[in-house]
Amino acid sequence: MRQFIDPRLFGRPSIGLALFGCKNRPFYQICVFPDKALGRRYEGSIIEQVGSFDPLPNNHNEKLVALNIGRIKHWIGERKAHVSVPVLELLGLSGLLPIHPKTYIRARERTLESQTKEVQEQPKD
């Protein structure tokens, strides 16, 4: 028999990025989704929005992130929410959690890339 359940209280929620925005203008909301069994198919299945992330750099070359830290703490601590890697990276950079390993690796790769580029661009005497 089918039973109605409250997606807010059922299973293990997950925190992830939900792509909003429009054509050529991505914009992410950091959202809490219900248990994987219930699916994260619709906008309506979002339990709570706990932040936002603008991936396009603005005039000051900043990618803006907004976080509701109190609520994120609640979902991570009390509700044991699963957090997706991109959100973990953002939380690491914000200082709420330790820096994510992938962030380290990516930073190093980028540094190496830029260094090699500099060496290539130097004029040969």
């Binding site: 703490k73 991570i76 601590g77 959690l97 390993p101």
Partner: peptide, 25 residues
């Protein structure tokens, strides 16, 4: 190789941080 040990430490840290948040609440 580096990701392996980093992941282990990170996951441990996250587990303890979860506990910390619970205690905080």
């Amino acid at each position: 190789k580096e990701l392996l040990w980093r992941r282990f430490t990170y996951n441990n840290a996250i587990a303890s941080i979860r506990q910390l948040y619970i205690q905080e609440s």
